[in-house]
Design a protein around this nucleic acid. Structure first.
Lengths: 233, 233
DNA sequence: TAAATTAATTGTCCTTTTTACAATCATAAA
DNA sequence: TTTATGATTGTAAAAAGGACAATTAATTTA
């Protein structure tokens, strides 16, 4: 037996929703699409799955080709397959999302590629069904971040607790009591206090912390509750 | 512009992992594969995505064609795309999982189709990477069921609290204190106590309950915690 | 040099939730 | 009537969560 001869073959694409944090607000990375249709319009990083690569490989390749990003947190999100989602030809797209510390890759991205960070709230309209993809990705990171320590992927190696809190407040579009937040975060045993301070944000300076990688990997699948009232995810 | 002319097209399949509960243990539905390769071996319900149907439609069609099941809880799980997962020809498969009350469809399935229920723990080896699909599906329902009232989809309209507890214990492979379990479940406001009893399980009989559908749909996306120590998902 | 400013850091009390734990009830069978 | 079986219900202690504000460290300003 050689082939499933009577079946129809389809185009398969990968689209990547890349979230980034700069210390202030949550952003997504968009690119000016390089081919027709919709050439020149803002879109997610996308491309077609090649015959010899897995989906994960495809997502990583596309990410690297279009942005230079490598080794970032990347996770399959959902597969979108409405027959008419691409007007040119039926294309099923496997969406991935990535979490990136913006500053870490700042120079690289802006110099070499036509990609640009947009505030998630103020991003331009996207092509095809990509708006829906972004919305699902946003829901997913809220969902995961409410229980798993996933948001650390968006921060630099050294970070302060106020920075961490700003990130959570940004992702969940809420405000959290400072005392309760630091109490909870420290109680996880995920943070190691460092000797030096970040003096950028205040006169007094805030102590840097880094992840306890042992505990981080051990607790990554565990449940925790960083968010006060997670009913509204 | 007519087509993305230079790209390779792939076969796209859908595979369905169907979980069922009979009041005792958690089961999955398998079928004897009807075509080569691996014809006659136990496999998930699968088929190729047709040119004009969405992925959800494809999953529902395949489910109905192979088992007669219709209108059951069906959710996209993950997309599997290792290049060599199908030895005949590269096929990417979008996996779905379904939750079914076994007794409700018992006659239908056994009479009309070559499908059979197996205890999840004692299921035969499956073809290709379907073992991995089942494992992922098992993880997913644990994950979801720990917070969302999804397991009611596995029960008949009328059920007792001991039945519900057996289901949870079966899915999570654990034991739960009876008093605490019923306290929690009743506290959700999801259950309506009925007047009649199920006398099958005991002399005294256990009161039937049914879902309060209002609250059910309202709370389906909400977080709740049915499982004492959900660290081990 | 002192005062003012700014953000970081820390603690307590109260409420709610979770957990551990066992006696009683209803019914059919003996 | 007694017995046996599973269903039902309650309480106290512990843990977690939530509301709430004063103090500290360092720079900037007066």
């Amino acid at each position: 037996m050689l082939k499933y001869s009577k079946q129809t073959r389809l185009l398969l694409a990968v689209d990547c929703i890349i979230f980034g944090f700069d210390g202030e607000v949550l952003k997504i990375l968009l690119i000016k699409r390089g081919f027709q249709p919709e050439k020149g319009n803002w879109s997610l990083m996308g491309g077609f799955v090649q015959p010899d690569e897995s989906l994960d490989q495809s997502a990583n390749r596309i990410l690297k080709q279009l942005t230079g990003l490598e080794g970032v947190y990347l996770e399959q999100l959902y597969t979108f397959g409405q027959p008419q989602r691409d007007p040119i030809e039926r294309t099923v797209s496997v969406a991935y999302f990535a979490l990136v510390d913006i500053h870490k890759y700042e120079a690289q991205i802006s110099d070499d590629y036509q990609a640009e960070w947009f505030q998630l709230k103020r991003a331009p309209k996207l092509i095809f069904d990509q708006q829906e993809m972004v919305e699902q990705a946003r829901k997913r990171i809220r969902y995961k971040a409410a229980m798993h320590p996933i948001l650390f992927e968006l921060l630099p190696t050294k970070f302060t607790i106020p920075q961490l809190q700003t990130l959570y407040e940004s992702v969940f579009n809420t405000t959290i009591d400072k005392r309760n937040f630091s109490k909870r975060v420290l109680a996880t045993g995920l943070l190691i206090k460092l000797a030096d301070k970040d003096k950028a944000g205040s006169k007094r300076g805030a102590y840097y912390y880094q992840l306890n990688m042992q505990n981080y990997y051990a607790k990554f699948q565990a449940f925790m509750n960083f968010i006060p009232n997670p009913d509204s995810l």
